[in-house]
């Protein structure tokens, strides 16, 4: 019995599935640097571009929308708190930005326009990086990623497997959480996920089982000869899309352009200066 997982590989044969892991990692690197460095409106365009790329991942709309149930609540404190905090600290610390006023429910709320801008930027950057990473996660088989790291990036296979285990543990932990949540429901336990009691009831058993499972998995790996041979075979050769060299060059060029845009926007200079 297993329900659909959000934070894990989705089997498929979409355009993104057919692109090799290293090419996708180059693209992801470009997007992450761009998201951190580029101005807010550029990140808005990037978010739109990622939405446009979603159909090429083969992931259904429901799965694509599910992470937003986490991302949007995360936005709220990021967007609401900085305007208030910046406003409160403006007089004390002399922070930049002017104060604006919002008339709501018959009350006058003062907030920092700079703070609001700052909060929205963080939310947008987080969303771009989150969605881009999920697109890679959904369409990249962890085995291919390991193989790519070992054969192309020449990473020691034991380290590459550490990445693999981290990736496959996410759906396992999600599955464990689902079952525990079923059990709490059936036993009539009411709790809020974000409360201390909810964390104790939901997270502690999942952590306990996950830790024990981690130990058993290590035991099982060693018992099956993991680390015995200096080199490790792979069952299949990596599958590359046609003209992979050309594709990688194009993706690398786009990544460099994105990084260039981020640098040109001056944000990195500001960060370095500050």
């Amino acid at each position: 019995m297993a329900q659909e997982v959000v934070l894990g590989y989705h089997d498929g044969d979409s355009v993104l599935h057919r692109i090799d892991p290293l090419t996708k990692l180059i693209a992801l690197l470009g997007v992450i640097v761009f998201a951190i460095g580029a101005p807010i409106d550029y990140n808005g365009w990037m978010l739109l571009a990622l939405f446009a790329a979603a159909p090429f991942s083969g992931v259904d709309l429901k799965t694509f929308l599910r992470p937003w149930s986490v991302l949007i609540p995360l936005w709220v404190p990021f967007i609401l708190l900085p305007p208030v905090l910046f406003h409160l600290q403006r007089g004390l610390l002399g922070l930049a930005g002017d104060t604006a006023h919002l008339h709501l429910f018959g009350q006058d709320f003062a907030y920092s326009r700079y703070g609001l801008n700052y909060g929205v930027k963080i939310a947008a950057r987080g969303s771009v990086i989150g969605i881009a990473s999920l697109l890679v996660l959904w369409t990249t088989h962890p085995r291919d990623l390991v193989q790519s790291m070992v054969q192309e990036l020449r990473a020691p296979y034991k380290y590459a497997w550490a990445v693999f285990l981290a990736l496959i543990y996410v759906p396992i932990v999600q599955h464990e959480t689902q079952i525990r949540s079923h059990a709490l429901h059936i036993r009539g336990v009411r709790y809020r996920r974000l409360s201390l009691r909810g964390l104790r009831l939901l997270a502690i058993p999942v952590i306990f089982r996950s830790l024990r499972r981690g130990f058993s998995t290590a035991l099982s790996m060693e018992a099956r000869g993991f680390g015995v041979a200096p080199q490790r075979a792979f069952r299949h050769d990596l599958h590359y899309p046609p003209h992979v060299g050309l594709l990688r060059a194009a993706v690398a060029l786009v990544a460099v352009l994105l990084i260039g845009v981020a640098i040109a926007s001056g944000r990195f200079a500001v960060m370095a200066h500050s």
Partner: peptide
């Protein structure tokens, strides 16, 4: 340890 059935079976053989 692995993600799919066939990878799991091949795991030990790859290790050796």
């Amino acid at each position: 340890t692995c993600l799919t059935v066939e990878d799991e079976i091949a795991f030990a053989l790859e290790n050796f």
